Amino acid sequence: MAAELRDLRARAGAQTGPASRGPDPRMFEKALQEMAAELRDLRMRAGAPSLRQLSTQIRDNDTLPATVSMSALSEVFSGRRLPRWDSLSAIVRTLNGDEREWRVRWMRLEELQAAQRGPRKL
């Protein structure tokens, strides 16, 4: 996992050393759009359920960790925001995706998003 994150930082344009400026802020947006496109592909392979159908299937499945509204689904599938893991997990499981594979993608995006925000101030 650490090696994957180092590779992700390198591909994102992260620099090392005292002159480090961090990753290019556009990398998070690009990666978020790529994830949204992959989610849309997963949705198509699952029979292209409408957002209403998907939201209902998630809500009606008691084994899933979260419910996801139609508006939240729209934001996720359009790449406007990175969902919490429990929401993405519910989407992926409902669409019969590989949860472990998507967890790695989500963690990479979390890392890019955190790098874009910069260090937290105390």
Rank of each mutant, 00 (worst) to 15 (best):
S89C: 15
P119A: 08
R117Y: 09
E75C: 13
L42W: 13
P18F: 01
S50G: 06
L109K: 02
N96M: 09
R117T: 02
R84N: 11
V68D: 02
V76Y: 04
G13P: 12
A37E: 15
S69T: 15
R6K: 13
S78Q: 14
A72N: 14
P23R: 05
E111T: 01
L64N: 12
V68R: 04
L82V: 04
S89P: 11
R40A: 12
D62C: 00
A37V: 08
L51H: 07
P23D: 00
L8E: 05
G118S: 10
Q113V: 01
S50T: 15
Q116I: 05
T94V: 05
L112P: 01
Q57E: 14
A114C: 06
Q57L: 12
P49S: 03
E110P: 01
R26P: 00
W102G: 03
K30S: 04
Q53M: 11
L73R: 03
A2T: 12
A12C: 08
I91D: 06
W102C: 00
A19L: 10
R81C: 05
A115K: 04
K30I: 09
L51I: 05
A31P: 02
S20D: 05
D98I: 04
D41A: 15
S87F: 00
R11I: 10
A114K: 10
V104D: 06
R81N: 13
M1A: 15
R26L: 11
F77M: 11
A37C: 14
A66E: 02
A31M: 07
